[in-house]
Nucleic acid binder design. Structure first.
Ligand SMILES: [Zn+2]
Ligand SMILES: [Zn+2]
Ligand SMILES: [Zn+2]
Ligand SMILES: [Zn+2]
Lengths: 140, 140
DNA sequence: ACCTTATAGAAAATCATTTTCTGTAATGGA
DNA sequence: TCCATTACAGAAAATGATTTTCTATAAGGT
């Protein structure tokens, strides 16, 4: 993703454009995987520049509020994925934490649920396993 | 659920049968809703007897390990639901935290995902909204 | 260029969760 | 039933992730 797109993304949401947010967002989006706040912090530091851990926490919180990031609980840890704006689901590799977005939604069941037990506001559908490259890597 | 069932549940998993575990499990299962560890602790205290918070944490951890409980991340808090052993999904009321189990699974998509991006080990499908009684309660 | 206000970051505080330790009680076998 | 073994409960302390506070800075609008 281009720096310009990042800047537009920030503008769209009325966030100020700072080099720290640019750095974190660039890393986050390009990586195509999920991170814990600390992992993302390290990742940004290595690749771009020094950014405070507090800033990473704050950006993840902000992104989550506007629906641009989603927290996942995996094995007791909270991981964040970057979310494009269309409705989508995920395939998460439990080994390398790569995340693939799945734009096909097979949860029409929502309509039934809606009638039976209450009003569905949103749903989550995610698949967990091992991605192709992790499988090939180690086939014992 | 009967005390006898709780005891059998514990036996099945080779856990010792203690009054503390009986109390927590009775409360947890009968409530039919999700709890944070602290909430469950309070709930048990009110209804049954004093049980240490540490014990609640440990039981939830243990149950999660053997698949009898599932942690959910909602609005930054970790909630646990009790899980029967069949494959199922959830409808969670965001207001009262009631949980309904849904035994219908519309995620046959898993097979496709499996072929396209990797090997699916498990999936999660959950619906969030407001339950009937919460809806009727306040219709502004 | 100036003003207003959001943001970054360091340090301190908070708070949920885990660990440690010790006394107790559940289990299984004699 | 009694004993030995070991899991468990609970209090207290430790840990460590996350949040809050505070101040300096820089972004955006006029
Ligand atoms: Zn992988
Ligand atoms: Zn969907
Ligand atoms: Zn409700
Ligand atoms: Zn399913």
């Amino acid at each position: 993703m281009e720096l310009k797109d990042i800047q537009q993304l920030l503008h769209e949401h009325k966030f100020r454009v700072t080099k720290e947010r640019e750095a974190v967002l660039l890393a986050f989006i390009d990586a195509g995987r999920m991170f814990t706040p600390a992992q993302l912090h390290d990742y940004v530091k290595e690749r771009y520049e020094q950014v405070g851990l507090t800033t990473v926490y704050r950006l993840l919180e902000t992104l989550t509020k506007v629906g641009l990031a989603t927290p996942f609980l995996i094995d007791g840890e909270i991981y964040y994925t970057f979310c494009p704006n269309q409705h989508h689901h995920h395939f998460v590799c439990l080994q390398c934490h790569q995340v693939k977005e799945l734009f096909q939604c097979s949860a029409q069941q929502a309509v039934d649920v809606d009638h039976q037990v209450g009003t569905v506001e949103y749903h989550k559908l995610d698949f967990f396993g091992r991605c192709r490259s992790c499988e090939e890597e180690k086939h014992c």
